[in-house]
């Protein structure tokens, strides 16, 4: 039992990070903290993908040694073969000398990181604007201000209607 848990250490870390991130996102009142939680949550997913790409005994997915010449001939098949060999020893099916980790998830996560960074940038820009407009970055205070203003308008509206 303990071995099963220990052998999947990566996944436990991912689950812990994911839940921490989600909890912060839901629970924090401070808008910056919510973004931090969101980032932690996203990062746990990045780790998940990187864990998937690891092949036991595999090295970084950069061709080395005798593989360079072989690969030059049929470069186009590389990505497909690497993807197909996921989860087993990647060297087995591809006729390569060395065992490589699957490069595809790394590429995907590079894209996902860019997406995450841009989301974070937009989020922080929004927080700056909220600070300018409301004078606070606590979401409960923002909500309280909104409710007060809306109530004041509701009180105002019939009076205006009556006056016309």
């Amino acid at each position: 039992m303990l071995e099963i848990i220990a052998a999947r250490g990566n996944y436990w870390i991912i689950i812990a990070l994911m839940m921490t991130g989600l909890y912060i996102t839901f629970e924090a009142n401070n808008l910056i903290k919510r973004l931090v939680g969101l980032s932690v949550f996203q990062t746990s997913v990045f780790l998940f993908y990187i864990t998937l790409s690891k092949v036991a005994g595999g090295t970084a997915p950069i061709l080395m040694g005798g593989d360079i010449k072989k690969k030059a001939k049929h470069a186009g098949e590389e990505a497909g073969a690497a993807a197909g060999g996921q989860g087993e020893a990647a060297g087995a099916g591809t006729g390569l000398e060395n065992v490589y980790s699957n490069p595809l998830p790394h590429v995907l996560i590079l894209t996902a990181i860019v997406v995450g960074v841009s989301t974070l940038a937009v989020g922080l820009a929004l927080v700056v604007r909220i600070r300018e407009a409301y004078g606070t970055i606590e979401s409960d205070e923002v909500r309280a201000i909104d409710i007060d203003v809306a109530l004041a308008e509701e009180m105002d509206a019939p009076a205006r209607e009556g006056a016309q």
């Binding site: 996102t25 808008l31 919510r34 969101l38 949550f41 996203q42 989020g123 929004l126 979401s139």
Partner: peptide, 16 residues
């Protein structure tokens, strides 16, 4: 602004 921020948080959670 808060509406957009909420949308951002929820939308990012959904995409993730």
């Amino acid at each position: 602004l808060p509406a957009a921020f909420n949308y951002l948080v929820m939308g990012t959670l959904g995409a993730t």
